[in-house]
Measured scan of single mutants.
Amino acid sequence: VTLFVALYDYEARTEDDLSFHKGSKFQILNSSEGDWWEARSLTTGETGYIPSNYVAPV
């Protein structure tokens, strides 16, 4: 499992996005959609889309 960590805070703009804070960790579920990845937050357990340029591999 590849884990990613948030580099910045992000406020969701749609109900499909995940809001998160810098330092939040994610499991990436689908990275084939270009700049928006489907991810599960390891902090909240919620699933949604995150901007790929806001995260980096742990």
Rank of each mutant, 00 (worst) to 15 (best):
V1M: 13
V1G: 13
V1R: 09
V1I: 13
V1C: 15
V1N: 13
T2C: 13
T2R: 11
T2A: 12
T2I: 13
L3C: 11
L3K: 05
L3Q: 07
L3F: 11
L3N: 05
F4A: 07
F4V: 11
F4W: 15
F4H: 06
F4G: 03
F4E: 00
V5K: 04
V5W: 06
V5A: 05
V5L: 06
V5Y: 11
A6L: 02
A6H: 01
A6Q: 01
A6V: 02
A6P: 00
L7Y: 03
L7G: 01
L7F: 03
L7R: 03
Y8L: 08
Y8M: 09
Y8T: 05
Y8A: 08
D9Q: 04
D9G: 05
D9H: 06
D9E: 06
Y10H: 05
Y10W: 08
Y10R: 03
E11P: 04
E11V: 14
E11A: 10
E11F: 09
E11D: 10
A12P: 04
A12W: 02
A12C: 05
A12E: 03
A12L: 01
R13Y: 07
R13F: 08
R13Q: 14
R13W: 07
T14Y: 15
T14E: 09
E15S: 13
E15V: 11
D16N: 15
D16S: 14
D16Q: 14
D16H: 15
D16P: 05
D16T: 14
D16G: 15
D17N: 11
D17I: 12
D17V: 15
D17F: 15
D17G: 15
D17A: 15
D17L: 10
L18T: 03
L18P: 00
S19I: 02
S19Y: 03
S19V: 02
S19D: 04
S19M: 03
S19H: 08
F20M: 05
F20H: 00
F20P: 00
F20G: 00
F20Y: 01
H21G: 09
H21Q: 14
K22M: 08
K22Y: 05
K22L: 05
K22S: 07
G23L: 03
G23K: 01
G23W: 05
G23H: 05
S24C: 13
S24V: 11
K25C: 14
K25Q: 12
K25H: 13
K25L: 15
K25F: 15
K25W: 14
F26C: 03
F26N: 00
F26M: 05
Q27G: 03
Q27N: 06
Q27E: 14
Q27R: 07
Q27C: 11
Q27K: 07
I28D: 00
I28A: 02
I28E: 01
I28T: 02
I28Q: 01
I28F: 03
L29C: 08
L29R: 04
L29I: 12
L29V: 08
N30A: 09
N30T: 08
S31G: 09
S31W: 13
S31C: 14
S31I: 11
S32K: 11
S32F: 10
S32R: 10
S32C: 12
E33S: 13
E33F: 12
E33G: 14
E33L: 14
E33P: 10
E33Y: 12
G34Q: 13
G34A: 14
G34I: 12
G34E: 13
G34M: 11
G34K: 14
D35M: 11
D35S: 09
D35F: 13
W36G: 02
W36I: 07
W36F: 10
W36T: 06
W36R: 14
W37K: 02
W37V: 06
W37S: 03
W37G: 00
W37R: 01
W37N: 01
E38F: 15
E38T: 10
E38S: 07
A39M: 05
A39L: 02
A39C: 05
A39F: 03
A39E: 01
A39R: 00
A39I: 04
A39Y: 02
A39G: 04
A39H: 01
R40Y: 15
R40G: 02
R40V: 14
R40I: 14
R40A: 06
R40E: 07
R40P: 02
R40Q: 10
S41A: 09
S41G: 03
S41P: 02
S41K: 11
L42P: 04
L42Y: 07
L42H: 06
L42V: 12
L42I: 12
L42R: 02
T43E: 15
T43C: 09
T43L: 12
T43I: 09
T43D: 15
T43P: 05
T43Y: 08
T44E: 03
T44D: 06
T44W: 02
T44R: 03
T44G: 04
T44M: 02
G45K: 05
G45I: 02
G45N: 08
G45P: 01
G45D: 06
E46W: 06
E46T: 06
E46P: 00
E46C: 09
E46I: 08
T47N: 05
T47R: 10
T47A: 06
T47Q: 10
T47P: 01
T47F: 08
G48K: 01
G48A: 03
G48Q: 02
G48Y: 03
G48H: 04
G48W: 03
Y49W: 15
Y49Q: 08
Y49L: 14
Y49D: 02
Y49V: 07
I50M: 01
I50T: 00
I50K: 01
I50R: 00
I50N: 00
P51R: 07
P51G: 03
P51K: 06
P51Y: 06
P51E: 02
S52T: 06
S52I: 06
S52G: 07
S52V: 08
S52H: 08
N53M: 11
N53D: 10
N53F: 09
N53K: 13
Y54G: 05
Y54T: 06
Y54W: 07
V55M: 09
V55S: 01
V55W: 02
V55N: 00
A56Y: 09
A56P: 01
A56D: 05
A56H: 08
A56S: 09
P57L: 09
P57V: 08
P57C: 06
P57K: 08
P57R: 07
V58N: 05
V58E: 10
V58C: 12
V58H: 08
